[in-house]
Design a binder for these strands. Structure first.
Length: 303
RNA sequence: CGCGAGGUAGAGCAGCUCGGAAGCUCGCCGGGCUCAUAACCCGGAGGUCACAGGUUCAAAUCCUGUCCUCGCAA
């Protein structure tokens, strides 16, 4: 069975890697265009392009898929697999061959682009992965199979995406085999219980210590790769990569609790402890190193 | 040429404006105190001040170029 793979970011790459590992015949990878990004606005190529080329897999990058239906007609494939491709697939393309999607949530819960972050933000203990038909709507296709995955307190976006991708890979492999031998079954989603996640804005990552410590730790966990939770201390913008809820300390809400060894901030409910953070222009540091060199000009957290 | 910050002991920083013997907080090694400690006290090792030129009697500090790291914006 010849597979055409659609996907761009890390989640997609892990799945692609696994498919190849399992010996599936991936005839090509379709991903988003190169874009100017980062310092100096240099053109950035998606990492998966490099990955695919190293393995001699053809790569297509199209700005608008709907303009390239004829190109897809020329590609010899039996089924398309999508994983975090990032854009809707036009009906004309879906009509060419069957298409299935890997989605990191227990659909119909958390349809949309940010299911993993949303689960972490909400402090969920359970999430999951679903394999379903790719439709023209947003993550609303019939489901072949899904499986729950536990979210541990120490999980963050980095660890969870890895877990979900690996589980997704297994489910995907099973589903592809069933489709291959004609035993695949699918059931429609329960529209009544459908929820949609919202896109992440940069301002969502601003920490708010008038909220509970736990909720802000969840923010750190959800955004640890991007856009990274942050707050202001005077003029300094500090990004927080890792944090936890600490035992209680005396202190004023929204202020840093003076402590030589630990970076603690009192919230309205609980103490927020920073374990890994970064100043503008600086490296990512563990709290101890940060405190060794940082000179506090204020203990009051800005907004 | 999008805007900006920075490269100083193993780590994190100060010193640079106004050139003139390398400092702070940790870590490490040794010793002391303590029932005890992430506590405290004493002592010690460890640095071509990113690299290359230039100015100067003298450069971490001023000038020029190179390399590297990072923040913002998109």
């Amino acid at each position: 069975m010849k597979i055409l793979f659609f996907g761009t970011p890390k989640f997609a790459e892990i799945i692609l890697d696994g498919l190849l590992e399992k010996g599936f015949d991936v005839v090509g990878v379709v991903c988003q265009n190169d874009k100017p990004a980062g310092r100096g606005n240099k053109i950035q190529t998606p990492h998966i392009v490099e990955f695919a080329k190293e393995r001699n897999i053809a790569v297509c990058q199209f700005e608008k898929l709907s303009l390239h239906i004829d190109d897809f007609k020329k590609i010899d494939y039996d089924i398309a697999v999508t994983a975090s491709y990032g854009k809707f697939l036009p009906k004309a393309l879906l009509d060419l061959h069957p298409c299935i999607n890997v989605h990191p949530s227990m659909l119909p819960k958390y349809r949309g682009a940010t299911p993993i972050q949303t689960a972490l933000l909400n402090g969920d203990n359970i999430t999951g992965v679903s394999i379903m038909e790719t439709g023209v709507g947003m993550d609303d296709g019939d489901i072949f199979v899904q499986k729950e995955v536990e979210i541990l307190p120490e999980d963050d976006y980095s660890t969870l995406i890895e877990k979900l991708a690996l589980v997704g890979l297994e489910l995907l492999a099973q589903t592809l085999e069933k489709i291959g031998n004609g035993t695949a079954k699918k059931v429609p989603q329960d529209e009544k219980n459908a929820t949609t996640v919202k896109l992440i804005q940069k301002e969502d990552a601003l920490l708010d210590f008038s909220k509970s410590a736990e909720s802000q730790v969840n923010k750190v966990r959800a955004f640890c790769e991007d856009p990274v939770a942050f707050f202001f201390l005077g003029d300094d913008r500090i990004k927080v990569y890792k944090a936890r809820v600490a035992e209680d300390f005396e202190g004023e809400d929204g202020q840093v609790i003076p402590n030589k060894k630990r970076f603690l901030i009192k919230t309205s409910n609980g103490v927020f402890e920073i374990l890994k953070c970064q100043m503008q222009g600086g490296k990512v540091l563990d709290a101890k190193s940060f405190l060794n060199g940082y000179r506090f000009k204020t203990l009051v957290v800005g907004v």
